[in-house]
Design a protein around this nucleic acid. Structure first.
Lengths: 112, 112
DNA sequence: CTTATACATTCCTATATGGGAATGAGTCAA
DNA sequence: TTGACTCATTCCCATATAGGAATGTATAAG
């Protein structure tokens, strides 16, 4: 007999989770600095349109992309500011990897 | 009638997915610059030991942490170098957010 | 008004996986 | 050897979610 479990936490409201999906990273890469329509993205990445729309919704819900309606088309662009959250978080560790590089370098020089 | 689906791709072999889980980020934060045992982590973060072990396995599988056996204990430490992958990926967009800041600043100055 | 275009949304299925509980495995002390 | 510790692993369940198919909705064109 097993008791109830809680399963994993809801995460689609967190940029870290949003970029965990490779497809979504591809979309962001494609959109980097260039506004594009949904159909454009689908064609460029060889994905089904509904799939693209759904990924864009996830990205939008965490603020990673913004949209603009233009006639029948919906133009998306990245909101790179939202990526700073993640960039800065990783940056927390940069002091350590820099320290590591120093140690590696020092070690290499000791051997000479 | 619905055809077979493929579900989401396996991701636990990708640092982006590894840090998508809040608990795993907490572990990494705790380990930042400080080696710790599994029990230590569990106590500090108020998690069950098996849960910590499993998260550590995920982090280890993508190279985000390394371990060292010391008697009965297993000491873990971060491998911050692995975070550079993510940091660099976000960095791809930094030119855009810097551009955005310039635009915002310019716009603010125009209004004065 | 009718039709085509461009997206968004919904329904369904299959899969990945986090947590809980129990158990296995290795190490140290007496 | 026995028992206590420290982790890792396994089994199970419940949930989140990606993809496929079909459908809904809004806009533009004829």
């Amino acid at each position: 007999m097993y008791k109830t479990s809680v399963a994993r936490a809801t995460t689609t409201s967190d940029p870290f989770n949003a970029i965990a999906e490779p497809r979504r990273r591809h979309i962001l890469e494609l959109l980097a600095g260039e506004e594009r329509s949904v159909g454009d993205i689908a064609t460029a990445l060889e994905m089904e349109q509904p799939s693209v729309s759904k990924h864009l919704q996830v990205l939008r819900s965490v603020g990673l992309v913004t949209l603009r309606h233009h006639g029948r088309r919906t133009m998306y662009r990245t909101n790179p500011e939202a990526l700073r959250t993640i960039h800065d978080w990783c940056g927390m560790f940069s002091q350590y990897w820099r320290g590591q590089l120093r140690r590696i370098k020092a070690h290499a020089e000791d051997k000479r």
